[in-house]
Nucleic acid binder design. Structure first.
Lengths: 190, 190
DNA sequence: TCCTTTTGTCAACGAGCGTTGATTTACGAC
DNA sequence: GTCGTAAATCAACGCTCGTTGACAAAAGGA
């Protein structure tokens, strides 16, 4: 058992996070199927066998790296007429920040477990907000419409990178898409 | 050179379309990467080598099958205030009809050529309609917003099959999403 | 019938994949 | 130095993939 000065990161930890970083980058760029363990290892500048040694299998590595840290904001404190904008801002931060969301969406179209993971996220992040903002009976319908717009924005902007969507500036997105969300939620269509 | 009675379909044509049908089904269900030539052959009940013989390669077969017959409707005859609804109806028909659209979107997230194909479709199908319905300078922005909503609907309803989106009935979609499109286009937000 | 063309089968190739187990290197503890 | 363990390497496995070329069967015209 080696005892290292705690201020110096253990070598194994550095390798571990090098693999994670490489995996995050490649999974996000190419999706699960087109990313190989050998490529991840090459980018992290280590041996392919180490990836298995540290993470068990390609699936386990993907699950770990694609598990987004969903820190949902306190939307209960937001004025009801501004929930749309707040939701859009929150999701823009999530997509552009270090969360695993782009990884998940890129693979969700052809990977069942990734799709399921996405579904869970929406069920926990947007559904409660929508449900608390109107009559409960129409909540699923309204949540579905919201999901279609938010995921469509993410798909076209961060995955497909359609030029006119990439070109939209943040303020425009918050205003326009936020307005749509607000309208779907059913609180003062603005 | 064989001359068969024209009312009797040549055997080769039946095999050819059996392969195409199997390919369409599997590509649509699993995407490009997860679909193998051997599976296509098994579903069509023929030898894997025949797939190559008839179509050259997996890529060529995919390109052929994923090329949607984009018969865009005559939207110039539609009342400007109803373009949103008309566009939504048109795209619902395209997705649910026999077009290759679901195949394309399922693979677009991890297949560059499929993504490019999708981009072309939107550039030719929705951009002209949007451009002709407002001042040209803001056309790209408005087209981007429209694309984000329409592709988001397709993604959540036909690819990810999120339950609340699948549950939406056609009239609700035409009304709600159509209204959003109309608002993005900028013609009388209804 | 024989011959030609079309259509289909079969076995195998080379390559790439995820994964494994044995082996070697690096390195702090004594 | 020497030892023991953690970290990293290496070669190879079994498998699946797309693709190929040689060969067999079927079909139609003469």
């Amino acid at each position: 058992m080696s005892l290292m000065p705690p201020w110096k990161i253990e070598k194994s930890e550095r390798t571990r996070s090098a693999i994670e970083d490489a995996a995050r980058q490649l999974f996000a760029e190419r999706g699960y199927e087109r990313t190989t363990i050998r490529e991840i290892a090459a980018l992290a500048q280590i041996d392919p066998a180490l990836v298995i040694r540290y993470f068990g299998s390609k699936d386990e590595l993907f699950s770990l790296v694609a598990e987004p840290d969903l820190q949902l904001p306190n939307l209960s404190a937001i004025a009801p007429s501004r929930i749309g904008e707040a939701l859009v801002r929150h999701f823009l931060d999530m997509w552009e920040g270090g969360s695993g969301m782009p990884i998940l969406l890129r693979s969700a179209a052809s990977n069942a477990s990734a799709a399921q993971s996405l579904e869970r996220i929406f069920a926990r992040q947007v559904f409660p907000v929508i449900a608390s903002a109107g009559e409960p009976s129409t909540a699923p319908q309204r949540a579905g419409l919201v999901a279609s717009q938010l995921l469509g924005l993410a798909l076209t902007r961060y995955i497909l990178k359609l030029p006119p969507v990439v070109a939209l500036d943040r303020d425009t997105i918050v205003r326009e898409i936020g307005g749509t969300i607000q309208r779907y939620i059913g609180q003062s269509p603005k």
